[in-house]
C-alpha cells in the first residue's frame, strides 16, 4: 500500500507547494515520463530530503522547484506565488563545481551582493567567510582550495544573498566520506542558525535520515512520491539509537533493498 502524505507539518506556514506536477520529455519521438503527479508541501524553515535511486527524477523535481525547468503540467508555488524562473530569494547549490574559478573566495561570496554598498558588502562577506570557516583564505582562488572548502564556499555564496530557500543537489556527493560527515554537521549548524527552508536531493539513505525533518522517498520512472517519512529525532541525532535504525531500515525496505550486502 502506497501512502502519500502531502500535508506540511501542522502549525507551520506553508513555504513551498507542489501540486500535481508532471514532467515529460520528448526525445527521438519517444516520450519519457520523468515525473508523474507529484504533490508535496514544505513548511517554512523545514529541512526536506528528496531520496531515490538515480534516474528517479529527484533532480528534475528540484530544478522545477528552483525555476530552472517548467513542469509539463501542474503548478509550483512559493509563498503562494507561482514560480516563473530562478530567483535570488531561492538559491540552487550545485556540487562544488558551481563556484566561479576566476574569483577569489571573497569575490565568490560577494558575487550576488553588487547592490549593497561597499562596507555592507565587506561586512556580509566577512560574516559568511567566518560562518563556513574559510578565514585566512579570503584571497585564495578555488583552485587552491580542497573539495570540502569549495563546497562550503558555494554554500556561503548562496547564504550571503540571504535567500529564504536553499536547493541542494547531492552537494556532498563528490566528497570523501569523512569530509562528507563533517559537511553534514556544518550544514545542520548553519541551518539551525539561519532557519532557511532546505530541499536536499540525495541518493544516500543515511544522509537523508541524518539531516531531514522529513524524507521524501521517490520511486523511479515515472518519478512519483512513494512515501514521506517524518524523522522525529531531535538534533544532534544519535545515529546508533534504536529509533534511528528503525527509521533507516524502514526506508531501506521501502526502496526495496534487503539490509544485507
Amino acid at each position: 500500500m502506497v501512502t502519500k502524505e502531502v500535508e506540511a507539518a501542522p502549525g507551520l506556514k506553508t513555504k513551498l507547494s507542489v501540486d500535481n506536477v508532471s514532467m515529460t520529455y520528448k526525445r527521438d519521438g519517444k516520450l519519457t515520463h520523468v515525473l508523474e503527479n507529484v504533490n508535496l508541501e514544505v513548511s517554512d524553515g523545514e529541512f526536506v530530503c528528496l531520496l531515490g535511486p538515480s534516474g528517479c527524477g529527484k533532480t528534475t523535481l528540484l530544478n522545477t522547484m528552483a525555476g530552472f525547468l517548467t513542469p509539463t503540467s501542474g503548478t509550483i508555488q512559493v509563498n503562494g506565488e507561482a514560480v516563473r524562473g530562478p530567483d535570488p530569494r531561492r538559491i540552487f547549490v550545485f556540487q562544488e563545481r558551481g563556484v566561479f574559478p576566476w574569483l577569489t573566495v571573497e569575490g565568490n561570496i560577494g558575487f550576488g551582493l553588487s547592490k549593497l554598498t561597499k562596507p555592507e558588502r565587506e561586512q556580509r562577506i566577512a560574516h559568511y567567510v567566518k560562518m563556513v570557516g574559510l578565514q585566512g583564505f579570503e584571497k585564495s582562488y578555488p583552485a587552491e582550495l580542497s573539495g570540502g572548502m569549495k563546497q562550503r564556499l558555494e554554500v556561503a555564496r548562496a547564504l550571503a544573498v540571504n535567500p529564504d530557500m536553499l536547493f541542494l543537489d547531492e552537494p556532498f556527493g563528490a566528497l570523501d566520506s569523512i569530509t562528507r560527515l563533517v559537511m553534514r554537521s556544518e550544514l545542520l549548524r548553519i541551518w539551525q542558525a539561519e532557519r532557511k527552508t532546505i530541499i536536499f536531493v540525495t541518493h544516500d539513505i543515511d544522509e537523508a535520515v541524518q539531516l531531514a525533518d522529513r524524507v521524501v522517498v521517490m520511486s523511479a520512472r515515472p518519478g512519483t512520491i512513494q512515501q514521506i517519512v517524518p524523522i522525529d529525532i531531535a538534533h544532534p541525532r544519535d545515529i546508533s539509537s534504536q529509533h534511528y535504525l528503525e527509521l533507516r531500515d524502514g526506508i531501506f525496505k521501502q526502496i526495496g533493498l534487503a539490509h544485507q550486502v
Binding site: P86, F94, G112, V161
Partner: peptide
C-alpha cells in the same frame, strides 16, 4: 552550472 548560477543570482 556557471550560467545557471549567474541567472540564479538575478
Amino acid at each position: 552550472v556557471f550560467r545557471r548560477a549567474g541567472r540564479n543570482f538575478g
